[in-house]
Amino acid sequence: MQSMAWPQLLGADPVMGEAPGNTALESRFERIFAQFSEPIFNYVLRMVGDRDRAADITQDTFIKAYRKLDTLADDASTRSWIYRIATNTAIDDMRRRRYVTPMGDDERHNRRPDPRPGPEAQVLDASIDERIQRALGRLRPNHRQCLVLSDVEDMSATQIGEVMGMSHGAVRTLLCRARGEMRRELLQEGIGS
């Protein structure tokens, strides 16, 4: 996994009212950012289907995370905590743009020829990725969300429940419906049986 270094310490934080040089807070945030920035970006990208929007949402996610860092009880729950913030931020964004189709901008990117040279297989893979993403984009948001958390992020139903604020049983039911819906959407893309 590629990680991104946090560019220097934050210095005085007018949001949190923290004193300058709160190195414990900053170093904790640095670790979270380094570990989760790329997974969160890709998770959000699967959710919204557009790089620019995914970058904005990821940015807002980590700003919120920084503000709420004192609510993070222990490091063991960091993953579900940060995914939950990202999920809520992405849903909020989708809610505000719900009259804009989630795949709108991505359609433009998808039509762009890939300038990178590569073997035939790479082109084929890219095409399948595009079709999978299109199918994902047509799912209901909560179906898309739990499917990505399960099959892309490899979370258990219990972990998904922590992220989505649902019971284990509810996640199992939702996940089953999501798989059924995704199966139909993939068929529309000429994938699967």
Binding site: M4, L10, A55, T58, D60, F62, I63, Y66
Partner: peptide, 9 residues
């Protein structure tokens, strides 16, 4: 992205 987050904060 990191710079944007920092700027945002």
């Amino acid at each position: 992205l990191a710079a944007r987050v920092r700027t945002g904060i």
